[in-house]
């Protein structure tokens, strides 16, 4: 059952809410089969140096990039400057104005640098990109990214490539509830039920790479993720019976000094 309530991102409308990553696949053929099986319309890509000897074949060979909405990333960047440069290089290929800002702040865990991500998002929005920043699962950060002009925010469920699933469900649900722009859960989704779960909460979509690429049968797993995303979306639209969330300040709300007048 195709999704009737498509996801609007910038100038495009996605009817599939599963975004398909293209890294780590064993071959170009397996990747192509997986993308087709997933029904995804949007795929992610990275920007890298061309091998000068002409011997190395890209895993993207044999995939008609024109047939998809491309979401290039800035993977490899560790600063806002590097991310902006990679974004410009990606756009210069002439295939997409979308950019997934990805700025690693810790080289071991690959967790994103929130401060540089906000800066790069603002700069790239000013340059006319449609910006989807990958971010840590922090509620206020998501709000700041939306304020900076992000078209959607992409909080991670768990570190990139970890397939650990949703590590902080409470935060993700809060982000989904409060963020004024679509929330696409990226990174760490290991199995279809992880994807179904965040979609039930109201995530606008999910981005899956390792969970599919490293499955024994990637195409079959892509199909399973697609079904899970649809099921989760349908459940969200149907309205969950609900588990109320409660939170309250530990410190008194009243009695804080009056805000200072601006100088």
């Amino acid at each position: 059952m195709p999704d009737q309530d498509g996801l609007h991102l910038g100038a495009v409308k996605l009817t599939s809410r599963l975004i398909h990553g293209t890294g780590k696949f064993p071959s170009s053929e397996v990747l192509a089969g997986s993308i087709t099986a997933s029904g995804a319309q949007m795929i992610t890509l990275a920007v890298r140096r061309l091998h000068l000897d002409g011997d190395h074949h890209s895993e993207l060979e044999g995939i008609d990039l024109g047939g998809y909405i491309l979401l290039p990333n800035t993977a490899g960047a560790t600063s806002a400057d590097e991310a902006v440069r990679l974004a410009r290089l990606a756009r210069a290929a002439g295939l997409s104005d979308f950019i997934k800002v990805e700025i690693v702040g810790d080289s071991e865990s690959l967790l994103p640098d929130p401060i540089a991500t906000v800066e790069a998002t603002a700069r790239l929005v000013a340059e006319g990109f449609t910006v989807l920043p990958y971010a840590s699962d922090d509620v206020v950060l998501a709000l700041r990214l939306a304020e900076a002009g992000a078209t959607a925010v992409m909080p991670g469920a768990a570190p990139i490539g970890s397939t650990l699933g949703v590590l902080n469900p409470h935060n993700l649900r809060l982000i989904i509830a409060k963020c004024p722009v679509p929330v696409i859960v990226d990174a760490g989704l290991g199995c279809p039920s992880d994807a179904a779960r965040v979609m039930e909460w109201g995530a606008a979509g999910v981005l899956v790479n390792t969970g599919i690429a490293k499955a024994r049968e990637p195409a079959a797993m892509a199909r399973a993720f697609a079904a899970a995303v649809q099921a989760g979306r349908s459940a969200h639209l149907a309205g969950l019976a609900g588990r109320p969330e409660g939170f309250g300040a530990s410190s008194p709300q009243a009695g804080t000094p009056a805000p200072l007048a601006p100088n």
Binding site: G21, T22, G23, K24, F25, L31, T44, L45, A46, V47, R48, R49, L50, L52, S58, E59, L60, L65, L70, P72, N73, A75, L89, A90, A93, L95, I160, G161, A187, L207, N209, T210
Partner: peptide
Amino acid sequence: ELVHFVGGG
């Protein structure tokens, strides 16, 4: 620098 798209997440 000569760059192109490769697979990525």
